[in-house]
Design a protein around this nucleic acid. Structure first.
Lengths: 212, 212
DNA sequence: CCAGGAACTTGACACTTGTCAAGGTTGAAT
DNA sequence: ATTCAACCTTGACAAGTGTCAAGTTCCTGG
């Protein structure tokens, strides 16, 4: 009976802890999301915890309550960013019924991303560069890179499938190609180059038929 | 005669000033080169002027004598870096007498660069990302990017020429492809992935015949 | 209702940062 | 030999940094 009571109490305790953990994690994500605002605005090098706090509804102390240090916070940001990014084109891929439909859907999303989420993406490129210096970032960054490669691969294989073909290059090469084009377009777009987006779209439109 | 004397004096003064300018610029380059050491080691975000000074033969004050501020110094670094980079493959391109020779020469240089100059290249990617946040960097970075694109294009056109063909893609796409592959390989290499370099070489070897 | 702990705020700390002014050193022209 | 400007060093300054400990508020279980 004592044992049973203990068992029940333990179960309750475990459940309570799980709940607390969940709440804790939800808060972490909230804070990470707030941090991403400032990081996207200023970049890694110029962003301090106090600046993050000032551009949010939180005080700078909370961040130390939920994160062991600055790197921990930013790692959490990077991981959170991933979840939002990696499925961006999946709807287009699954709904497109022809090559043209897929092409147009892809291009439209590409343009919209470049237009509306430039800040988040420049942060991604910033953090990926930071990973070359800071080992703590590497695991997460490499993982996200793999996910993005898979994302591109899903598009390419579907595109090939719709033409009864198979992609002519490896996943790595295709990702390198599109990532390189996007990165260059992003920089030009941020430098107020009006032709950045149309040039990217033209390039991709021309390229798609040649990769399969 | 007074006019002649003035003219001569002016010519002397102009020459003296030119000499002074040259010396001044030479010193700037010296300082920039010293700064590149530390920047390559720590990255833009973690590099301070004092750190740069401590890892060099100079005191931190000199840097303010020769540069108006930190951005000025780093811009000078970027510009100086460019000159060293952009001609890396030119010898291979001009001496190669066959496709195979060009391929092997290119791959060898690629591997050597990744192995020996990883620090300089991660700095380049860092600064290119910084340019997305810091307008002051954009002009130089975009210019260097163009030069690198031209460098890749020289390789591709020569490779095509040696097979009596023409490149199948645009300069922008080819640069995006190789830059993307290199960047990914660099990150993996820095993360101690032993397969980073061989994987890159395999990929490029497979890719080259398909781009022309 | 109240004790106690979780959640959060505040202010202080030790340190680093970019910048600059005041001074020293050097070398060449007079 | 003196002078003067170019060159460089030094030390100080204010502003900003990450971190943390002490205190406050709030909420929930008993």
């Amino acid at each position: 009976m004592a044992r049973q009571a203990t068992g029940a109490a333990q179960r309750v305790a475990v459940a309570a802890e799980a709940l607390r953990d969940e709440k804790f994690n939800a808060r972490r994500v909230e804070l990470a999301e707030a941090a991403l605002e400032t990081l996207g605005e200023l970049g890694f090098a110029r962003t301090s915890l106090r600046e993050i706090a000032q551009n949010s509804a939180f005080t700078h102390g909370v961040f130390h309550y939920y994160f062991s240090d600055k790197l921990d916070l930013i790692c959490c940001c990077v991981r959170h960013y991933k979840a939002k990014c990696v499925t961006r084109y999946d709807e287009v891929v699954t709904t497109a019924r022809s090559r043209d439909e897929l092409t147009e859907g892809f291009l439209a999303k590409l343009a919209a991303t470049l237009e509306n989420e430039a800040r988040m993406h420049r942060l991604w490129y910033d953090l990926r560069s930071q990973a070359m210096f800071e080992p703590a970032f590497r695991k997460d960054v490499l993982e996200i890179d793999k996910s993005l490669e898979a994302m591109i691969w899903r598009i390419a294989t579907r595109y090939a499938e719709l033409g009864n073909k198979r992609p002519a290059s490896s996943p790595a090469a295709l990702y390198a190609l599109f990532d390189g084009l996007f990165q260059s377009a992003l920089l030009r777009h941020l430098a107020n180059d009006e032709k950045a987006i149309p040039d990217l779209l033209d390039e991709v439109r021309r390229l798609l038929p040649t990769i399969c």
